[in-house]
Design a protein around this nucleic acid. Sequence first.
RNA 1: GCCCGCAUGGUGGAAUUGGUAGACACACAAGACUUAAAAUCUUGAGAUCGUAUGAUCGUGCCGGUUCGAGUCCGGCUGCGGGUACCA
Length: 858
Amino acid sequence: MSRYNAKATEAKWQKIWTDGKTFKTENTSDKPKYYVLEMFPYPSGRVHVGHVRNYTMGDVVARYRRAQGFEVMHPMGWDAFGMPAENAAMERKVHPADWTYDNIANMREQLKNVGLAIDWDRELATCDPEYYGQEQQIFIDFFNAGLIYRKESWVNWDPVDNTVLANEQVIDGKGWRSGAEVERRQLSQWFLKITDFADELLEGLGSLDRWPDKVRLMQENWIGRSEGLKFNFEIVDAPDGIDTKLPVYTTRPDTIFGASFCAISADHPVAAALAENNPEIAAFIEECRQMGTTEEAIEKAEKKGFDTGLKVYHPFDKSWELPVYIANFVLMDYGTGAIFACPAGDQRDFDFATKYKLPILPIVLPTGEDAGAYELGEEPYLGAGTMINSRFLDGMDTKDALAAVIDRAEDEGWGERTVNFRLRDWGVSRQRYWGTPIPFVHCDDCGVVPVKSEDLPVKLPDDVSFDTPGNPLEHHPTWKNTTCPKCGKPARRETDTMDTFVDSSWYFLRFCTPEADEPFDTDVVNEWMPVNQYIGGVEHAILHLLYARFFTRALKKVGRTNVEEPFEGLFTQGMVNHITYKDSDGEWVFPELIRKKDDGSLFRSDSGLSVSEGRVEKMSKSKRNVVDPDDIIDQYGADTARWFVLSDSPPERDLLWTEAGIEGAWRFVQRIYRMVEEPSIALAPVDSAVPESLEGPALELRKTTHKTIKGVTTDIENLHFNKAVARLYEFANAISGAKEADGMAEVLREATETLILLVGPAMPHLAEEMWAKLGHDTLVANTAWPQAIEALTVDATVKMAVQVNGKVRDTIEVAKDMDKQAIEAMALDLANVKKFTDGNTVRKVIVVPGRIVNIVAN
RNA sequence: GCCCGCAUGGUGGAAUUGGUAGACACACAAGACUUAAAAUCUUGAGAUCGUAUGAUCGUGCCGGUUCGAGUCCGGCUGCGGGUACCA
């Protein structure tokens, strides 16, 4: 029995595709266009199995669409700026550029071995000056359109290393290298006005019907549009230097009579003003700043407040004064940075009121409760009901009360109905080297001035040092010295670089015309965009996807495209998990070191120590539960790896990587090889026609063939690759079982060729090899997708389950169009049914044609 | 904390979207072939009781809607993703 040699065969076909420029994409093609894109990788150094999964899914779509006659664009690039390159520079004394380009070279080689149908001529890396220079041009366009501004904003500050830390670098409130308590500090930074597009970005979600509902919902909640009341509290005897008006925003104006205090953010101007003359307040504000900037850290921190001594008048009653607290849970970035609190209707306010012994007055009576007897327990009541203790609102429904308060505020002129968004403007400044330099110059006379377009790109200097913490661009002896583009006098370059999310917010446009000496050719982009199918991890559900949507709209606004939404179809794939192993010393062990003893127990091949299995977890270097795709491809070939990552797990869910699974895939590869090399009966010659009249097993196999074409096509359309795989296994089983019969030689050829074409997108090398063996001198990559003959995909009869009182008791085979009465009569007459209906009265019979009969009898 | 998911045999999962739960695969067991091993082929299997025909139970937990619930609704538990400077 001969064996399929994956390694040699795969290399052969990859060379044929490359030499023949098989996957070169033409911008000028007459064919309909289809743009498939997977989220481009960060060049970390090695390709991960998660990458293989992601790019294989995209490749199946690309090859399938190609077979359907589309001009497919399927490009690849590198999200190449970011912190790991700087960390490598600090730890291993390599230049970030060398580290990054080496990684790219390695990963490109690895990806090429996967056999992806990619047009490598379009490859780009975001750290190429040709790329980031165009990004700087876009930045200036946005600046000129008023979409960019500077403001003071908070960063994590490491007081020992004197450097800005990323959230990731803050561990339990401490700097990851220095171990110092992190504080928040303000810096002047660059912002993009994404909030100008809040409404559009929210409404645009409605048109994205090929996006997962969960992603749309997450984005909707992130944008967080709310309607509420904005009004000013009047401060009682406001001290000098403090405005008498304290603006607040609330989404629950109906709870205004349950108000028991006001709370302002520690970063609120009133707090700052009070701190000037009050060291205690200054100390409290300082304390509030002893933590990182993440929402998680702020929300999870113990709720603390400080009574400022200030009071405000209740808007409906000048004799009612509320105390004003500074509270560590009030965010300066949301609303006005000040709130009124109703402890009876909000958990956080309730906890705070309990802690500081502030009044808790119930104002909503839950539906069904008795007004006289109602008391609030140990918890606030957050639901709807009827207003109580609320003066003119008493007796109203909460919803009506909300409107009534706003109406009253507007009538009396002290407040207004206001739409508010949770979404904040996008801060893009990073105090780091390995990113796109922000193309601006600071001039003492002219202020902040954009670099002239003809002077772009503003290139990063090569000679930088990472010996001292902080921004190497800031430390560089000469780089920041320049002249003002406006007045020509000596001036200083901006040393901040851009958030790497900026780089990934338009790369899909650059792919359309990667050589353009402008960001992209507008006409070509308008032809290709939107991306028809975008595939990537769920972890990008909010930030990356929202920023890319914003960028696309902003680029339309500055006239560079007419595209509104960048991604027509979105698919979010799951992660790849692997079991963990620990040896008897408690060390994590790499899977390739695991060996099995005869009694089934595990040991590690290097030290011989016994090993136990741990939890299944996301593959990570620290847990050592990683598998290198190179090893798999070397041993089994790319097709086996591709087939395995598509099998079993639904693509949106996590995939459990197992050695047994990969072997199963490998066996299937061999099985297909045998089906062509040693078919169960001799195949009819190539190009022979299938006889029109068939019966028996030959007809059955032919029907299976066409049902499979139909099913696999639908599965791939819906990206249900695991179902397509299962269906193809069944098809292979049917083909293997073929026995000599009239017309079978022709039917078996049709079936075998169909199988090859259907597995083609998933296992392209094997498919090409088998296609050639079957006598074809064309490429599968250039062969049309098989068409199902509809008449062969339907059966004349259907099998129906017959239930008595919801339990299946028998099945019947009936003609597809049999009427309900006849089915009912047949069902009632079954012996297995009578056994359960005898002695009972048949009360009801439900017949669902083609599915089920349910007899209710008692 | 908040937002969003997910949970089905020993394992990964399927179930025409409210209609026969467990397709397909992995692992396992028995058998065939083989000097032997590998490979391959055949057969078996959710659990419990039973030799068996079969009966009962069964989709994380508690409750509800329905002739009928893995699927819909309410309440939990556990795990995962995001939380604006990881990408």
